[in-house]
């Protein structure tokens, strides 16, 4: 059998230009276009690179409303083989525990892939929870911050990946099947090709799973299955700042700044030199 890979992706509102309803503190979703969560494209790219080297199949999975098919279409345009949409009204309102539960059960039903990729975090919640949570549900080893897959050996059941930490790289040998979370901004996702997108429309490599297929207890999914609840939303309190502003000649401005910083005790002039006073 050939290498099986799956990537979890999320279809998210493009928060670069998001607006808020200041009264309710909720997001104004109308008119906000959605995109595939950028970090997930890193994960897709990582998986496609493995496929370039070793062959096999890459599928994506997303738990989302049906509109997320657009996201699946996008990554199929990048060269992903097929997509799975996990969708049901009862799944709505899920926190990360309930989301990871549904995803895990769906993945189990589809058959565990050799490598299960995720993005590092989403732009709409940026928790970075899902990869570890899915690993916990499925009892799989997991590696975060992966920027390279160095080797995959399906016969012997292991992969070697490199993870990028703040001060070092680590090469990790992990048993298959494994969960891999791609390091943020670690890849340059390949462009979408029209020919691939046409394949999406021609072959319809899309599978939909609802709770009819999964048969999960409604108490375990969606809002009801979520231990965390958003109790209220408020404005972020402001940090008190002096807000003194200088307008005018730039050279004067620089002198004004140095003077102010000296008044604050941050800059001191000693022996004809300015330096920062250490706290």
């Amino acid at each position: 059998m050939s290498l099986e890979m799956m990537v979890g992706i999320k279809w998210v509102p493009n928060t670069q230009n998001v607006r808020f309803d200041p009264k309710t503190g909720t997001l104004i979703r109308e008119g906000v276009p959605s995109i595939v969560n950028p970090a997930d494209l890193d994960a897709v790219e990582l998986a496609l690179k493995v496929k370039d080297t070793y062959g096999g199949r890459v599928r994506v999975i997303t738990m989302a409303p049906p509109s997320a098919v657009k996201g699946i279409e996008h990554v199929i345009g990048m060269g992903v083989d097929a997509g799975v949409l996990v969708t049901d009204r009862v799944f709505a309102g899920a926190d990360t525990l309930a989301t990871s539960y549904v995803l895990s059960q769906a993945i189990k039903k589809l058959g565990l892939p050799d490598l299960l990729f995720f993005g590092q975090e989403t732009i709409d919640s940026s928790t970075a929870h899902i990869p570890a949570q899915v690993a916990s549900w499925l009892d799989l080893p997991y590696v975060y911050y992966v920027d390279r897959v160095e080797e995959v050996n399906r016969e012997e059941g292991y992969a070697v990946v490199r993870r990028k930490l703040e001060d070092r790289y680590e090469w990790v040998r992990v048993e298959l099947p494994a969960v891999i979370a791609a390091a943020l901004k670690s890849q340059v996702p390949r462009p979408v090709r029209l020919s691939e997108k046409l394949r999406f429309h021609r072959d319809k490599p899309l599978q939909t799973l609802t709770n009819k297929d999964l048969g999960l207890d409604p108490r375990c999914v969606g809002l009801r299955g979520s231990p965390t609840i958003v109790a209220k939303v408020t404005w972020m309190p402001e940090v008190p700042r002096k807000r003194q502003v200088f307008k005018g000649d730039a050279r004067e401005a620089a002198r004004w700044l140095v003077k102010k910083l000296a008044e604050e005790g941050i800059l001191v002039r000693e022996d004809g030199r300015w330096r920062v006073r250490v706290a």
């Binding site: 928060t15 998001v18 808020f20 503190g25 997001l27 709409d124 919640s125 965390t228 609840i229 958003v230 109790a231 209220k232 939303v233 408020t234 404005w235 972020m236 309190p237």
Partner: peptide, 11 residues
């Protein structure tokens, strides 16, 4: 949550 303008109280 989301943008850093608001604060969500999560329980």
């Amino acid at each position: 949550p989301f943008a850093a303008i608001m604060l969500a109280y999560i329980k």
